[in-house]
């Protein structure tokens, strides 16, 4: 996390909707087997799982905090640090790679000021590289918020990012 632009350390993220989080946790109170479901729901609403929320989940669902923390850091679906509003996945698979994915990555890194695995200060984008999105014929592919954009040039990818708020 050497990037000074990275929001992981200082930023507290957007204010939590504490009432909504409590509502999700309370719905499953006392049911340890609902842990991952609760985590998924809060991750979907909040886009990350702050430590205080993990502690509250542990208490309400009667799961040791160590276990909650293990699960929160184990699965890629959960983020213990704030995530941006838009998930940018750049495919680095073989087909995309030979069709210029590294240049797209460079452009996106330049434009957003973040490296893969990081989130920018405005919490706008979270950047990840993936190893194949399964649509090699569209390469190079960038997936933003689940929507695949194919046959991109570096210039087009820059344009594409500018369309997001």
């Amino acid at each position: 996390m050497s990037n000074p632009e990275c929001a992981c350390h200082e930023s507290k993220g957007e204010p939590l909707d504490a009432a909504r989080i409590d509502q999700i946790i309370t719905a499953h109170r006392g049911d340890p087997s609902a842990l991952i479901q609760v985590m998924l729901e809060i991750q979907a609403e909040n886009r990350w799982l702050p430590r205080e929320v993990l502690a509250r989940m542990a208490e309400a669902l009667q799961v040791p905090l160590a276990r909650v923390q293990h699960i929160a850091t184990f699965y890629k679906a959960f983020s213990p640090v704030p995530k941006g509003r838009h998930d940018v996945h750049i495919c680095m698979g073989t087909a995309c790679h030979v069709r210029g994915a590294p240049r797209i990555l460079d452009t996106v890194e330049e434009l957003t000021g973040i490296a893969p695995g990081e989130t920018d200060m405005e919490l706008k984008f979270s950047l990840e590289t993936v190893n194949c999105l399964g649509c090699c014929a569209l390469g190079p592919v960038v997936e933003i918020d689940g929507k695949a954009h194919g046959h991109l040039s570096p210039a087009q990818s820059a344009e594409l990012l500018q369309g997001y708020e």
Partner: peptide, 9 residues
């Protein structure tokens, strides 16, 4: 006590 646990993978 669960004072120590694994993190990451």
């Amino acid at each position: 006590l669960h004072a120590v646990g694994f993190i990451d993978r």
